[in-house]
């Protein structure tokens, strides 16, 4: 569904991505693992288009979208849950979710999708009239994920959704990600530093280091290879 080929990008003169390539299969949870600062977020932002690509290719359903602007990618069913939440703090939870239905193709499904995310995160329904900025970190993360689901995506890319959450909430987030695949039929590209949890929920894993992909395999293969674990995951 998503093919990244030899992608290059960076900030100012500094190159961060050194031609990583990866493939996300339809209906799978694909996880991208790696320690802090190796370029995982930059990869997602470049695929999405908020960081401009320098070279390489991004194919979405076989179509070259490397230089398609971000709002058109959202229309095509690509959603991003960015690092650092980026909610609309003074709007209510409901208004944040309603903003997720901004794409024209998502508008007609707004109420249906609203029910769907309230079913995933019942707590958001209780909080629907509260300002998003007043929520706890975990609740804000739920809103960010829900807002992305409101855009009616086919492929959802999540940037460290469990970052900074208490262990119980981390489990809830990973359960939700699995539900996105099994119950909603979404394809997922998941960035994580939390190797254990992602190895347990992913169908396929890429390991990133120094701006490129250093290893890949099924979770079993990664778990089975002590070389990979020691060299890149520290477990």
């Amino acid at each position: 569904m998503l093919d990244v080929k030899d992608l290059e990008s960076g900030y100012g003169p500094m190159q961060v991505l050194w031609k990583p390539s990866l493939t996300v299969k339809k209906g799978n949870i694909t996880s991208l693992l790696g320690p802090n600062g190796v370029g995982k977020s930059t990869l997602l932002e470049t695929v999405f288009g908020s960081v401009p690509p320098w070279g390489g290719q991004v194919l979405y359903n076989g179509v070259d979208v490397t230089r398609v602007p971000t709002h058109k990618k959202v229309d095509m069913g690509l959603a991003l849950v960015p690092e650092g939440k980026h909610l609309f703090p003074s709007m209510t939870v409901y208004e944040n979710l309603a903003m997720g239905a901004y794409p024209k193709k998502a508008m007609p499904h707004r109420e249906k999708n609203m029910q769907l995310v309230y079913a995933l995160f019942p707590r958001l329904k209780e909080r629907s009239e509260q300002a998003a900025g007043s929520l706890s970190g975990g609740e804000q993360q739920m809103v960010t994920i829900s807002r992305a689901l409101m855009t009616q995506p086919q492929l959802i890319m999540l940037d460290e959704p469990s970052q900074g959450l208490a262990p119980l909430l981390v489990r809830e987030v990973f359960e939700t990600i699995v539900k996105m695949k099994t119950d909603i039929g979404l394809t997922v590209l998941l960035i994580e530093q939390n190797a254990d949890a992602s190895l347990n929920s992913a169908d396929y894993v890429y390991i990133m280091h120094e701006g490129t992909i250093k290893a890949e395999g099924t979770p079993e293969e990664i778990k089975g290879s002590s070389e990979i674990r020691e060299a890149y995951l520290g477990i």
């Binding site: 999405f48 709002h71 991003l80 960015p82 909610l87 309603a98 903003m99 794409p103």
Partner: peptide
Amino acid sequence: TRAGSAMRSVVEDSEGARVCGVNVG
């Protein structure tokens, strides 16, 4: 209006607006 809501969302968080499919530029 839809255009008004896009503008409000950009005021609050332009990156958040972008992931909602708003043409921030």
